[in-house]
């Protein structure tokens, strides 16, 4: 909730005032992923293979959808060592990919939250109608 402080005043209040509709940080999505997408969604693909990541000995937490950029960055670093400053382009590409990934995750979270709010409102209408 402290991190949500930055999005003040919106979601800073969410967890405190509306805990029932705010998803936790580690919860999985509860709604159908294709709900509301008439034209379907593009599936995310892993470009770096398992073998490549294993041979480069990348730690498990960094084996995500941006790992192919990470592999390029690491190989550039190793080639230019100790002048790692020559790899700034690869680092920027990787950071940009991670940024995109973060935005996608943020959007997923917000979609989940808004779907829950919609469910909640629907239930309130039903209770008020009954």
């Amino acid at each position: 909730m402290g991190a949500a402080f930055g999005y003040f005043p919106e979601s800073g209040f969410n967890l405190y005032f509306h805990p029932e509709v705010t998803p936790g940080p580690n919860e999985k999505p509860t709604f159908d992923p294709l709900l509301g997408f008439e034209n379907g969604r593009k599936e995310r693909v892993m470009i770096a293979t398992e073998e490549e990541m294993r041979s480069a000995k990348i730690p498990l937490e960094h084996r995500d959808y941006c790992a192919h950029h990470l592999l390029k960055y690491l190989s550039c670093r190793k080639d230019n060592w100790p002048w790692a400053v020559n790899c700034e382009h690869e680092k920027h590409v990787y950071s940009h990919c991670k940024y995109e990934d973060y935005v996608i995750r943020m959007k997923e979270y917000e979609r989940e939250r808004r779907l829950r709010v919609r469910e909640y409102n629907k239930k309130q209408h039903e209770i008020a109608a009954a």
Partner: peptide, 17 residues
Amino acid sequence: SWIIFPYPYVIILPLFM
């Protein structure tokens, strides 16, 4: 910070924070 972080830290934060 250039030497010892092979896996770069990517920080995404709003302006205020």
